[in-house]
Design a protein around this nucleic acid. Structure first.
Lengths: 278, 278
DNA sequence: GCTTGTCCTTGACGAAGATCAAAAATTTTG
DNA sequence: CAAAATTTTTGATCTTCGTCAAGGACAAGC
């Protein structure tokens, strides 16, 4: 037996593989932690609302996230319990069923949120982008697994700390409630997609959806980055990789989209919107 | 042209039919309102917490609903903006896309919550039972249609009034948030069912799910009422009526369930749970 | 009580998408 | 840069579930 830590890795197929890793590598590979800033975010304590502190001031997504709706004192309290954390691509931020010590606000990168059935079938319940919040349900254990599709940065808050804070700051709680309500609404839309749409319509609605999500971040564009694989898309839409590939190839052949290295370019948005129509 | 009100009824097929109804009948048929109590609920204003007023005191579901977590003054404020309302079976409580002047707490009966695609395909996003809350999203317009499957009673609250109230009463807001979080979690479970399960597994998970929901209300039992039609079940699970019927018949033939007039009786819960396994 | 309508069931057949297999393209790693 | 691994694409075949059709059960209404 080598030196190191024995871990059991669960494959996409549900198969369990035993591996032995040196302790150092364990952290980088399994937990993917490549950088940690356990000090308080800056935004120095008694600066007034408009002049935000350095790190939060530089934050690209403060207008998109939970932070948007806060006034100075709430913002400050939030900072006090938060810290930034970075993860490498392919790292697992947390796993379904494990304890949930933190809730997080994504500041950069993209995540895949998925649920695994005992036999290895997988359902991707969403993709998280900058401004999204993980842990809205505030349950003590995670309801799905979160994997980094790209390098990811998040603001983490202790879950009990965050829970106490929202109980004392109604505006913050309202922001969380609105976010949860929005997520619920998206989940119900996705139920329609999964239950009642053809493969072609599923792909169209996925592309239109990703486009509008990136529009919030980068402004509207026909270029839609797709940091996830075809397999991930299939597992999100209830299709196989092959069907996703075939449909996207067909759409490209029909000049509805162009497939580019990091995603797609939408040539015929009207056609896609018609297919995706709610 | 007869006397009355012309209405356009949208069929399940998406077809639009014009009808003319006498005004009186319009309310009963289209809006299904059969009784309204616009006065305040009783629970007379200055009675203390344990001795609840008459109507709310008689309420079967106060322990299941939003009301559970409230203290005396919050409860009283909630009563002030609420009223009870009853609907006949098959009545439409509200329609997707229409203004949402109220949020409601269901006190008895069962509802079907559904979304209609432009071409008539339908996705049932949920069934609401006593204790469930409609309007968690607190959006100004309804995101789905709610139809009564049985006679239904609800406590209605003005949406703006309720929204203001939760902003002032953090405990109430927290109750709403917890409910929304729970709904979100259920919606994500349903995504797994819709995306990655076979017809047989879908039926099993539906039956197990209905059983556990009724268990909260009536206590655990192998008798599971099914107030919805096979078509409704199909539209909930992304299946056709025929497939639902075939699968249920097969399960009955295999002695996993017994089909009874108002629902099913589960003979082999273990088998169903295995099929539905998360 | 008979008609009407709705709901449920069953059978025959077909199609959308899954599965299996393998090659091509792309990315990662040493 | 070459080898290895992963991802994507394409083709052939199969299966599950949808579609179409029709009969039966049941409740509602005249």
């Amino acid at each position: 037996m080598q030196d190191g830590v024995r871990i059991e890795r669960i494959q996409a197929t549900g198969e369990r593989v035993l591996e032995t890793l040196p302790e150092k590598v364990l952290f980088d590979t399994v937990f993917g932690r490549i950088e940690s800033t356990p000090r308080n975010l800056v935004c120095s304590s008694n600066k007034p609302a408009p002049g935000l502190g350095l790190e939060c001031g530089d934050c690209d997504i403060k207008g998109l996230s939970i932070c948007e709706s806060l006034d100075a004192d709430e913002f400050e309290l939030l900072e006090r319990i938060g810290r930034t954390q970075a993860f490498a691509a392919k790292a697992t931020l947390f796993e379904q069923g494990r304890d949930a010590p933190f809730v997080s606000n994504i500041t950069s990168g993209a995540l895949r949120l998925s649920k695994l059935l005992p036999d290895g079938r997988r359902q991707v319940v969403g993709f998280a982008l900058p401004g999204d919040f993980l842990g809205l349900a505030m349950q003590p254990t995670h309801m799905f697994t979160a994997d980094a599709l790209t390098p990811v940065k998040v603001c983490q808050f202790s879950r009990p700390g965050f829970s106490d804070l929202i109980d004392r700051k109604p505006k913050l709680m309202r922001a969380v409630l609105n976010m949860a309500a929005h997520e619920l609404s998206l989940a119900q839309d996705q139920m329609v997609v999964l239950g009642r749409r053809t493969a072609e319509e599923k792909i169209a609605s996925f592309l239109i959806g990703m486009r509008s999500r990136y529009a919030r971040i980068h402004g509207p564009s026909v270029h839609v980055p797709l940091p996830m694989t075809r397999l991930d898309i299939g597992d999100y839409l209830g299709l196989t990789v092959e069907t996703v590939s075939r449909m996207m190839t067909r759409m490209a052949r029909e000049k509805t989209i162009v497939i580019v290295p990091d995603g797609v370019r939408l040539l015929d948005v009207a056609r896609l919107e018609q297919l995706a129509e709610m």
